[in-house]
Each structure stands twice: as structure tokens, then as C-alpha cells.
Design a protein around this nucleic acid. Structure first.
Lengths: 230, 230
DNA sequence: TTTTTATAACTGACCAGTCAGTTATTAACA
DNA sequence: TGTTAATAACTGACTGGTCAGTTATAAAAA
């Protein structure tokens, strides 16, 4: 059933003056809308199985329009990652920069912030996507490593060093400790987007997990905490 | 152009008696060889981007032969996972079952065993593969959850409970603690197969990481260790 | 009118899975 | 022992479908 073309002549209803046009120019709004739709589809299907036709449909445009704003599927993927991660990373950096005094409470705030992001936003899918596609897109892996991992690790490493220098923390090996701090968060994000709801498993309690993690870190990091667990 | 059947008589080069045949019947060896080749290709490319033609080539057979032994790409993928994981899981279960006395040394042995597997074998790629494809193959995710994760978690949970009951460990929350114990291992496996060598990063020191993890767990789990770190 | 933004039909490459035919191997028989 | 018939293992060209990316065309805006 073909659409209503305006008939060659004397068409009874060629394009009634008041009805909405078939599309509008919305140069400013398109990129965000496309990135949001792409994030949904990539999250559901992974990169390879995501179909650009579906991204376009969810963004309310045609496939061709995607290519007006993004030169390729790869670049669209990178845009999704940038949009999801960078604002949060900047927020975290600001949080650390602004804080003075003891380091452990800063660490606590950081971990809780990330836990909340993982538990409540779509951002949680990003690690899974990057992990899945790292092999096929070395350039993407490098991008993510450079723009996200290195910065995130650097942030934590600086905080740890500060804590060690002012005698608050034991003299730990910084790099491995950063990894051990991050691992449960990464695992939570991956879990929530891969196994939640599978096989009748109850959803992962990210917040509770992180609280216990923080408690453990207190025992591991602090020089001598005068508090025993009841 | 018909192939070179043994010419009836006086053929110049009919099939010189000593030369190897173009292929051999090797019904017994094929499945393992195909699974090994598939593991390599899946590891390098991920599931979706892996081409069965390449799997066949590396296994030294034609694509058709794959389908004599495995009904589909999905089933081949599951066979790869089964072959890589199950033997090790059984070994771990045996280790725990055989051990008596204090629990922490058993935990240490388990963690070191897994660390060695991650650092030195191709098994490390499995988590990445499953994570990547969990969305597209819910059945696979359920299979892995049931056959690997549940069993592995159960093993650790039982060990923890034993330690708590005999007063060796603090009364920890078992399920979250299991996750916190496993997370660094999972992260190491994923890291090694996604980011090692990217952006000039030195390879991850899995063994060293796990030793520090064990040290931290000592502080977290043990009721009261009479030893301070120097 | 021209320029910009968008569409939708199209193309070309890719690949999982199939199947008609080929070859190694074994068994039966001379 | 050598020859032949039967069968199981294997091959590789082919098919059908999918999908990233292209482009002719048209509508909206300037």
C-alpha cells in the first residue's frame, strides 16, 4: 500500500495545509537522539548484532540519516561510549580534586557514586560492549583504554598515594590495589547486563555489595582502624 | 574435469603408491581438533565475527565436515566452553573435597590454581566470550550460569561457611563475599584478553595481583591473625 | 529560486548452512 | 594374495538471507 503521493493534478488532498510534514529538519537534536537510540540497541544486542536499521527506527529517522551524522557504525559506537562515560568521569575527577582531608571518605564517595551509576543507569552496559568488541576493534580498545581506564586508574592511584604519604593508608602497592578496588565494580556492571534474571537468579544487589567492599577496604587499607566489627 | 582415479592401465601418474591421500577418515580425532580450532578463532574474533570456514581451515577439514560433528555454530560454541571449563571445575571440586583442616590454605590453593590458568592457558578467553554473547544467546547464558557459575560459587560458599562455622573466619555475608573473592580473577581474565598490549601497557601480572588479593583476604576473613605485614 | 535535510530503494559483500558428488576404508569374495 | 562392492567420511560449490553503506529523489527551509 503505497503512500499518499500528491496525484499529478487535481488531487483532492495534496498536502492539507495544517497537517504535520512527513519530516522536519532538526539538525541540532538528531545526534543526541541517534546516540541514545544506538546505546539502547547496542546494549540489547552487542555491537555486531546491532542493526543500524533498528537504531534508525528507534531514533525516528531513516538509515540514510544516520550517515549524515556519523560516518560509520564504528564511529557511532565510539560516540555512544563517549557520551555515556566522559561526563561521569569528569564528575569523579571534580569530586577528588575538590576534596581535602582524609582520603578514605573520598574513596567511599567515589565507590558509592559508581555503584549508583551501575545499579540505576544504562551506563552499566558499556564495559560489556567494550570487552566484547576489543578483539575486533583494537583501535576502540585503545581509545577506551586511553580515555577511560587510564584516567580512572590514575584518579584512584593518586588518591591512594596521597593516603599512603600522609600516613592514613598502609604502604600498599598502588597499581594492583587500584585493580583490586575496581574489580568488583566492573564485575557488577558486567553481571547486571549479562546474567541478571537468568536461571531464576535474583537481581544483583550492587549497593549492598559495594558497602561490604568498602568495609573490607577499610580493613585492608587503613593503617590502624580503632573499630572492630561487632 | 574428473579427478585422478587410479587409471585402469598404464596411467602416467595414477596415484603413486607411497604418496599421502588427500584426506583421511579420522572420526575419533575430529571433534577435539575442531573444538580446539574453534576455540582459537572464537578467542580471536568473538562469536559473531568468527567464520566457520576459518575454523574448518585451522582444523584441517572442510566446512561441510564441521556439520557432520556439530549441528550449528551455536552448538559448536557451547562445546568449546564445555571443553575448556568443565575439567578445571572438576579439578577444583576435587581439591576442596580432599582437603581437611583449616580453610584459608584451601582458598589460597584455589585462587593460585585459577590464577595460573588465567595467566597461562587459552581458558582465559571464555569469560569474555560468554559475557559478549550473553545478550544474544540467553540459553547460553543460562547454560554457563548453571554449569559453571553456580557450581563455582557453590564451591566457594561452602568453603566460607565451613570456615565461619569452625571459628576460623569472621561471620561474613557469604554470597557477597564470594563475589568479592572472584571479581579480581574474572577481571584479570577479561583484561588479559582485551587490553593486554594495548596502548603500550605492560602485560598484567596476574600472579602478583592474586598474591596481594590473598594477602588482603587474610586481613578481611581471618578472625584474628597474629601476624602483621612487615 | 537554491540549498539543506531527509528518505527509501538499491547494491555488493559476506557467510551460515546444504547437498550432490568424491574418496578413503572396510568387508566380502575370488 | 588381489579384485570388487558397499559404506562412511569428507569435500566444496552453491543458496538464501542479512545488512553496512550508497545514491537518486524529494520535501522543507532559506
Amino acid at each position: 500500500m503505497p503512500s499518499r503521493q500528491p496525484g499529478p493534478h487535481s488531487d483532492p488532498d495534496p498536502v492539507p495545509p495544517g497537517d504535520p510534514p512527513r519530516w522536519r529538519r532538526r539538525k541540532e537534536a538528531r545526534p543526541q537522539e541517534i546516540v541514545a537510540a544506538a546505546m539502547d540497541v547496542f546494549a540489547e544486542r552487542g555491537f555486531a548484532a546491532a542493526r543500524l536499521e533498528e537504531v534508525a527506527a528507534r531514533a525516528g529517522v531513516s538509515k540514510g540519516t544516520l550517515y549524515l551524522y556519523f560516518p560509520s557504525k564504528d564511529e557511532l559506537f565510539k560516540a555512544v561510549i563517549r557520551a555515556a562515560i566522559l561526563p561521569n568521569l569528569q564528575q569523579a575527577e571534580a569530586l577528588v580534586a575538590a576534596a581535602g582531608g582524609p582520603c578514605f571518605p573520598v574513596l567511599e564517595r567515589l565507590l558509592r557514586m559508581v555503584a549508583r551509576l551501575i545499579a540505576t543507569t544504562r551506563m552499566a552496559v558499556i564495559p560489556r560492549l567494550v570487552i566484547a568488541e576489543a578483539g575486533n576493534f583494537p583501535e576502540l580498545a585503545a581509545f577506551y583504554h586511553r580515555e577511560v581506564i587510564r584516567r580512572g586508574f590514575g584518579l584512584l592511584a593518586a588518591l591512594l598515594r596521597r593516603g599512603v604519604e600522609n600516613g592514613e593508608f598502609r604502604p600498599v602497592a598502588v597499581d594492583p590495589t587500584v585493580r583490586l578496588i575496581v574489580a568488583p565494580l566492573l564485575m557488577s556492571a558486567v553481571w547486571r547486563t549479562s546474567f541478571d534474571g537468568v536461571d531464576g537468579e535474583p537481581p544483583l544487589e550492587v549497593t549492598a555489595l559495594v558497602e561490604i567492599h568498602i568495609d573490607n577496604l577499610r580493613r585492608v587499607l587503613l593503617q590502624d582502624s580503632g573499630e572492630g566489627a561487632p
